[in-house]
Design a protein around this nucleic acid. Sequence first.
DNA 1: AAGACGAAAGTGGTTGA
DNA 2: TCAACAACTTTCGTCTT
Length: 306
Amino acid sequence: MSSLVKRCPECGSLNLFYNKEKGEIICKDCGLVIEDKMVDFDQEWREFDSEAAARKRRTGAPMTYTQFDKGLGTDVGRKADLYKFEGKTKSKFFRLQKWQQRVSSALERNLKQALSELKRVSSFLRLPSSVDEEASRIYTLAVQRGLVRGRSMESVVAGALYAACRRHDVPRTLDELGEASGIEKKEIGRTYRFITRELQIKILPSNPADYIARFASALKLTAETQSRSVEIIESAQHVELTSGRGPTGIAAAALYVAALINGEKRTQREVADVAGVTEVTIRNRYKELLDKLDLEKEIKKTKKKK
DNA sequence: AAGACGAAAGTGGTTGA
DNA sequence: TCAACAACTTTCGTCTT
């Protein structure tokens, strides 16, 4: 958000990596992309001697959390490497190899499956790839902490996506996530709360204005109405009408009023449906808006014009 | 007849003792 | 752990256009 970020908001690390050409800031400890998108790491180590240099120098595909092993899988050596060893050492390698296949393949198969589910849901919702990355990262962390136990993989995926959307200011409603993932919205909310608490992911209450663009286009409202409703939301925030209220309800009411003012009336039901709230909620918010900001005149004005 | 309005009772989650 | 509480929903009857 701010260019003054000095600490990683995720783990508090000061070990940040600033890539000037690409304009990104990345936390080297936990991998969080603080600004802009996730990409390739460049060389970020120092070589103290030639042996270390040989080990550390690497090139490869960009690191990404949407691959189940971040594209950086490590295997117990195979084939050629194995024949360098004899006897005990050799059999040790075979044992290790077998162990890896059992343990890590179970884990990774799981992750692989989860990430493909994640991909499916996110493309259904047409989410930007940065959200994908974030959600994959959250899911991976959740698996590592054993937070999936006792919960279905799908619900954790949905929760991770919901959290990622919120962090990137492209909020989707729980209803939309529910429709896309086939998980009860209650359940998504529960796992969302659980994993954000356990992983200490801080999420600010979402801004009602973030919903406007999507709702407005679903209702085929003009750009003027859209910006008008954003103004309404802003002035509502100044009179403290927004805190503690559901952001979707506020967005819906603001949109409803703005449509009235601009003579593009939509019924409460129509607005309620796209916003995923009830008419009653719109009415309550709407009434508060009329009370605190005098919008009646403007509504009457457009009525007279007719 | 459809939409808007508002009262009343119910739901799920948060908070504070 | 439980009760009080706020926000939101559901349902339903009434008024307005």
